[in-house]
Amino acid sequence: MAALKTEIIIETRALCYSYAGAEEVPPAVAGIDLKVSRGEYLALLGVNGSGKTTLLKLLNALLIPSQGEVLVKGISTVEAERVQLVRQACGMIFQNPDNQIVATTVEEDIAFGLENMALPAAEIRRRVDQVAGRLGLTHLLRQPPHLLSGGEKQRTAIAGILAMQPACILMDEPTAMLDPAGRRDVLETVKELNKTEALAVVHVTHNPAEAAEANRIVVLEQGRIVADGKPGEILTDLKLLHGLKLQGTVAAELAHLLRQRGLNLPTAILQNRELVESLCISEPVS
C-alpha cells in the first residue's frame, strides 16, 4: 500500500503559460514544477490574478502549455488524441455551479461524461445510481437542474466528474456561490472520497478555513510557487502570509492581534477551539 501512496497523478515540468495577446505582460503561469500524488488533498492559494485558474486549466488540458509540460498519469496534455483520457483522470469543477450544468435532468447531467466515454448503458446506470447515492442526490435524479439549490447544483457537477472515476478532482473556488450548509455538503463529500478512495484533490480557495482542511498547501504569486507545506506550517506563518497579501484563519489572525497587544499565546493556533483553549488557560495580560 505504501507504493500506492506515492503514486504520482499529476506532474508539471517548467510549466509556463501566456495568454494570446498578453505576451508582453508576465506569463500567467511562469515556471511551475509540481507533483500531486494519489490521496493528496492540496489547497492552492494566491491573490487575484496569481495564476490559480490558469494552472488548473493546464492540468485539465483546457489550456495547452506555452512551454514545459503537464503529465496526467504519464500522459502529456499536448497529445490531442488522448485529451479525453486526461479529462477522465482529472475532472474540473468551476466556481459557478450554473455554468457547468449541461443537461435537462440531474440524471442526464451526471451521465453526460459517461456517455462520452461510450460505456454500455447498464454500466452508466450503475455508476449514476452509485454516485448519486453517495452524494445524496438520489431523490433529485429526475429534477431539472435549474430547480436545485446552489449546493445541490454543485454536488451534481461533482457527481458528473466522480462518475467518470477520476484519479484527481480539480476544484476552482467550488464553494464561492454556496451558502454555509451547501459549502459544508460539498467539502465533506470531497473529503470523504479523499479519505476512503484516495481521490487526489486540488482545491483553489480564498478561504483559509477551507485551506486548513487540506493536507498540503501551495501558494502562488505571479505564476510561481512561493510556498509549499503543511497547513499547520503555512497558515500559522502570518509573516509569510501577510507578505504575500494573504491571511490566516480567523483564529490565527485573532491570536496574532492579541499577541501584538501583549497577550501571551502560542504561535501555532489554527482552529477556533485551539484559540478558545489557550485563552481559557493563558496568563492574564502582562
Binding site: 451558502d179 454555509p180 478555513a209 480567523v250 477556533n272 484559540l275
Partner: peptide
C-alpha cells in the same frame, strides 16, 4: 436555516460558555 454567524461571534460564544 443553514446560515452561519460570523466566525468571531462563534468564538465569543465559546469563550462566554467557558466563563470568560
Amino acid at each position: 436555516l443553514g446560515l452561519a454567524l460570523p466566525q468571531v461571534t462563534g468564538i465569543m460564544h465559546e469563550l462566554a460558555a467557558r466563563g470568560l
